[in-house]
Design a protein around this nucleic acid. Structure first.
Lengths: 222, 222
DNA sequence: ATGCTTCCTGAACATACGTGTAGAGTCAAT
DNA sequence: ATTGACTCTACACGTATGTTCAGGAAGCAT
């Protein structure tokens, strides 16, 4: 793990303390004021460094979206609050049917909490969950009714399992870009791949990348 | 104390939840989006009411400066306990190798927390977790490296997936009692079942029944 | 009827805020 | 010698965000 410089640690401490004392994180300019840094970019350099070293997560174009990571709390010797450490709450979308699923809205009525360890280091805030419908990925061990944990991302690496919006349906497939089209490959010997021409392809079609699968097993049913 | 209207309470709840989940409060527009209020002023009316009634403090001209008061937490019945409710901590045994696994000891060094909802109502205290070794259950969608959540029980129903101690090895198989022997059936076409004579069968051989499977997926590897 | 609160639309405005570019100085490592 | 982290200034730009004004509809008490 990369070490922090004195200045970076000071800023990280300030962010943590402000978050606790005021209830929300500071802005870049507030940090600059406290640290006697006249230029917002001076502060930004530090924030970038903290993010790169894994002590801070940021949102793009979002004010005050500075959230220290677990590692940051450990470094600063601030004991985590009880058993809550490492848990994230994931919005649970029902069995996604037709139409653009409510990714934008994300009503929190239903949610699942999960150990962030099981997400393999992915930031829990960019993950949603949904239930699988159908057998199209059975050869990859993804069954009907399974819970999928999906990292929101508009792109994917070839061969990765993604959730994509195809013909207004959210479906789970493997992603294979080819020269002039995209192949969405089911993992089921009885099913054919779906092809989408690059010209028809919008980045919004890929909703995210599957990072985890959970299946309830009880009473012996598969 | 002035009461809150339904709508005001909804917004207050949203602010509290967002603060906890994301680490910072929402903006007026984010609230509007979630509540289906198109006008920022519509939201502002509610915020003014919440402030007037003493459930919220705000800063002037400051983004995201929405901090619920103690009274708000009381009203919502959140005793400062945050997201931990409904969580259970499950001891995680390493890849169980040979010999009686440390069920008795249950070194807690490693553990996973999981939403009890995902255990399907099984009491978390009688559950342990372990990682799968081998491909013997691949046709049931249980792969090498998967995490199994196992309910400790000495018995099982026919056909259920169990963790059993066979020849000093902990293995995952389906459980089929036959007239004078027990058949432990792998879910892999290339593998043969294991038979145990009833006379040799001790109840301690069944460690538990599999109630959940989790698989990390990342970078496209299966 | 007349007000009052709640709940909302729509639009406009000022500023708070994140981001990018173009530098520059220090210091340690190669 | 050069490269690269770290630290910072100064300035500009776009947009994210809070605030305010001008209403309107529904319900409810006086």
């Amino acid at each position: 793990m990369e070490e922090l410089t004195e200045r970076q640690r000071e800023i990280l401490t300030f962010i943590v303390k402000e978050s606790e004392n005021r209830g929300f994180p500071p802005t870049i300019r507030e940090i600059g004021e406290h640290m006697d840094i006249r230029s917002t970019n001076g502060v930004n350099d530090h924030l970038k460094a903290l993010e790169r070293k894994g002590y801070l997560t940021r949102g793009e174009q979002q004010s005050r979206s500075l959230v220290p990571t677990k590692r940051a709390r450990l470094l600063l010797g601030l004991g985590m609050k009880s058993k809550d450490s490492g848990m994230v709450e994931i919005p649970l979308l029902g069995r996604v049917a037709a139409g653009a699923p409510a990714l934008a809205q994300e009503h929190m009525e239903d949610s699942v909490k999960i150990d962030s360890f099981l997400l393999g280091g992915v930031n829990g805030r960019e993950v949603f969950a949904l239930r699988v419908k159908g057998q199209s990925m059975i050869d990859d061990g993804i069954h009907d009714g399974d819970y999928l944990f999906v990292k929101k991302t508009p792109s994917a690496q070839p061969g990765e399992i993604v959730v994509a919006l195809i013909e207004d349906e959210a479906t789970v497939k493997r992603y294979y870009p080819e020269t002039d089209r995209i192949r969405f490959q089911p993992a089921n010997a009885t099913m054919q791949p779906i092809y989408v021409n690059r010209t028809d392809f919008r980045s919004t079609m890929i909703l995210g990348q599957v990072v985890g699968v959970y299946r309830k097993l009880q009473g012996g049913r598969t």
